[in-house]
């Protein structure tokens, strides 16, 4: 199975994850500072800044795009409960 390296820079931890893992599945287990609200892409609480490797993430769904737009999210901000890590090296921190 394809692997990816997901780094949470606020707690300085890199996790080797299988392709398709969502950030939400990992961030709380390592104590990263990303906070969650609804956990289903509706509230925008888990807005996360992608420091590097945004090209290695799944494309935003229609729902995620809508919530990102409503929250005036930057080009490198994603919802941690929605986006999937696909490959390569990705570095994230709370937005």
């Amino acid at each position: 199975m394809a692997k990816a390296k997901l780094t949470f820079s606020d707690v300085a931890i890199t996790v080797n994850v299988p392709s398709g893992t969502r950030i939400i599945e990992i961030s709380e287990k390592v104590g990263a500072g990303i906070i969650y609200g609804c956990r289903e892409g509706d509230c925008g609480t888990c807005l996360t800044h992608i420091e590097t490797g945004s090209e290695h993430l799944s494309e935003p769904s229609v729902l995620e795009s809508k919530i990102l737009k409503e929250n005036l999210a930057g080009r490198h901000d994603r919802l941690a409960c929605q986006c999937q890590v696909l490959s390569g090296e990705i570095k994230v921190r709370p937005a």
């Binding site: 820079s9 300085a12 931890i13 890199t14 080797n16 990992i26 390592v30 104590g31």
Partner: peptide, 16 residues
């Protein structure tokens, strides 16, 4: 894991 409460450290690598 070996991150500490104080100060930044180089990322430690672990498996899911």
């Amino acid at each position: 894991l070996s991150g500490s409460a104080a100060g930044p450290v180089a990322p430690k690598e672990i498996d899911m």
